[in-house]
């Protein structure tokens, strides 16, 4: 219970600031409307109005909560307005991209650790790949793949993988190199082969690094998927929901989709953390 109180305090502070900001930012529209009608606005009227606008600059927390609630529970989950439906679309592409990215990251890391040529050549390219803004690349990937007749989940997954392989690559290279000289010497005295060294020493040593990088990687995969859903008029997914919201000035819809994405990210990271706990406990590395 002790840990709940500080969290609630911070949350309450955020809500208070948010309400204040909503009043401030939305008041301009209220004043404009009143001026056009030649009316005066009292403070209580102002408060009421800024909380209930249909297209506020900044929706008040309860409006976002209502939008979120309606999106999640207010419709059938097969409805085009359901956040569960859109969330599900985004989730499946995120997972596909995450798995692709993880496999690519791990394979590249194994190559880098075992092959000198790859050690010298792969990392600069991997770093360069991350300096290119994903927003610039995503539309091109979508367009190119669409012209090849590939649509739907795969292009999004590829962009998600493009973002998520990097932290996993970096984490795994560090993890596979975690064993010190003494531990490698010990295996040398047993005349152990390279693959025995990998399976018995390097891979188990890398597990804590592996899970840390997976957490970063899965969040990156979600970002990549949402970015991939923005261009080319996608109609499904949280990214599409964000985009259509901004087309029509539906700020409440945008904020509801944003929060849905944040909740999804939290759930994904927590899920990876749970797997980590189980695996490390099974390995005897969690105390």
């Amino acid at each position: 219970m002790k840990s709940v109180l500080p969290i609630l305090t911070v949350l309450a502070a955020i809500v208070v600031i948010w309400y204040g900001a909503a009043v401030g930012l939305n008041s301009k529209w209220t004043y404009d409307q009143a001026a056009r009608a030649g009316q005066e606005v009292s403070f209580s009227q102002l408060l009421r109005d800024t909380m209930t606008q249909e297209r506020p600059v900044l929706p008040a927390p309860h409006q976002v909560a209502k939008g979120l609630w309606e999106g999640v529970a207010g419709q059938k989950i097969t409805s085009k307005r359901s956040l569960v439906y859109h969330g599900g679309v985004t989730f499946s592409a995120t997972m596909a991209g995450f798995v692709l990215g993880a496999v690519a990251g791990i394979l590249l890391a194994v190559g880098i650790v075992h092959n000198r040529a790859m050690d010298m050549s792969v990392m600069p390219w991997a770093i360069a790949s991350q300096t290119i803004p994903i927003l610039a690349i995503a539309p091109m990937v979508i367009v190119v793949l669409a012209s090849l007749g590939i649509k739907g989940l795969l292009p999004k997954a590829i962009i998600a993988a493009y973002l998520s392989f990097f932290p996993i690559l970096v984490g795994m290279v560090k993890g596979l190199r975690a064993p010190d000289g003494m531990q490698l010497d010990l295996l040398r005295t047993y005349n152990a082969s390279g693959s025995e060294t990998f399976w018995k020493l390097r891979l188990p040593s890398s597990m804590p690094y592996f899970f840390a990088s997976l957490k970063v990687g899965i969040a990156a995969a979600l970002v990549g998927t949402i970015v991939a859903e923005l261009p080319a008029g996608a109609t499904q997914g949280l990214g599409a929901r964000l985009l259509s919201g901004s087309y029509y000035g539906q700020t409440i819809q945008i904020w509801a989709a944003l929060f849905a994405a944040a909740v999804l990210a939290a759930v994904l990271v927590i899920a990876v953390g749970a797997v980590e706990k189980v695996v490390l406990r099974k390995m005897g590395m969690a105390r």
């Binding site: 003494m182 531990q183 010497d185 010990l186 040398r188 005295t189 047993y190 005349n191 020493l201 188990p204 597990m207 390995m283 005897g284 590395m285």
Partner: peptide, 21 residues
């Protein structure tokens, strides 16, 4: 001799694998 596993080597630190009993 190393390939024939002629010796056992004990290092300064125990160097036990934490994930093994």
């Amino acid at each position: 001799a190393r390939r024939a596993r002629s010796y056992g080597y004990v290092f300064q630190a125990a160097g036990l694998y934490p994930w093994r009993t």
